[in-house]
């Protein structure tokens, strides 16, 4: 099947440091793939390149038939790639409700004067956006919290809100950057269930970075292992984690520690 997201030869250097070197990936419709690797391996760099936070030195990023490399972040999001962050980036002082609403920005469908004069189109569109926002908050168990500032939520709910907000932009590809960071085993189990549910209900492809191997093992059919900016292995999770190179670069550290 034709991949939704195809990345070829993606590279980025900072000074002399090759943060990402020749990264490649094919994400099919409905795929869940993972990127693992030690700290500083270049995983988040790859996400930043895909979402336009950094401009790639070379390489191609294609979403279906559209080339994304070099486009600004907001355009890339509108084309259908959305993400969460390792360190949660919510609009902290805004309410849960307003956080979700930001995702609808480019689909407002009304102009300044229609809003200023309170014309029917403004009111109808706002009503629809409110309904959709509410549906997202309910789906993620945040409806009761909607009037609270985002930074007052407990950590787990902040994670859920960030995922909900990313989904509200209606992505075709969702990038999750260490969604299980800082979670205990019970919370991790819940998160795995949540991601499975999202994958089932929203018809999208997911690419996730994760340190917690259980998450990768249970969710991903295909895993990329990065070390010092390079992909040192790729394949099925079990096969990859048995690869001596991977054990040396990644798992070896943990055993030694």
């Amino acid at each position: 099947m034709e991949p939704v997201l195809r990345i070829e030869n993606l590279s980025k250097s900072f000074g002399g440091l090759k943060a990402a070197h020749d990264f490649g990936l094919e994400l099919g419709p409905g795929d869940i793939q993972g990127i693992i690797g030690p700290n500083g391996a270049g995983k988040t760099t790859v996400f930043n390149l895909i979402t336009g936070v950094y401009r790639p030195d070379s390489g191609r990023i294609r979403l279906s038939d559209h080339e994304l490399a070099g486009l600004p972040s907001d355009v890339i999001t509108r084309r259908g790639i959305s993400r969460t962050f390792q360190n949660i980036r919510l609009f902290n002082r805004m309410t849960v409700w307003d956080n979700i609403r930001t995702a609808f920005h480019d689909r407002s469908g009304y102009g300044f004067w229609e809003a200023a004069l309170g014309l029917p189109r403004y009111r109808n569109r706002e009503k629809r956006i409110s309904m959709e926002s509410m549906a997202f908050l309910e789906r993620f168990g945040l409806a009761d919290r909607r009037n609270e500032p985002a930074d007052s939520l407990p950590y787990g709910e902040q994670r859920r809100l960030e995922i909900a907000r990313a989904l509200a932009t209606r992505p075709r590809v969702l990038l999750l950057d260490e969604p299980a960071a800082g979670m205990n085993p019970t919370e991790v189990e819940e998160l795995i269930g949540l991601i499975r549910g999202i994958h089932r209900d929203f018809e999208l492809s997911i690419l996730l970075i994760e340190h917690q191997l259980p998450v990768v093992m249970q969710l991903c059919r295909h895993v990329h292992v990065m070390d010092f900016g390079r992909t040192i292995a790729a394949g099925e999770p079990l096969e990859v984690t048995a690869n001596p190179l991977v054990i040396k670069a990644y798992l070896g550290d943990e055993e030694a520690g």
């Binding site: 999001t77 959305s82 805004m94 930001t102 609808f104 920005h105």
Partner: peptide
């Protein structure tokens, strides 16, 4: 929504563009 976006820029400029 434009007003919400303005508040979002004030709150966390880095996350704004990634909301499209």
């Amino acid at each position: 929504l434009m007003g919400t976006a303005m508040r979002a820029v004030a709150d966390n400029k880095d996350a704004v563009q990634l909301m499209g």
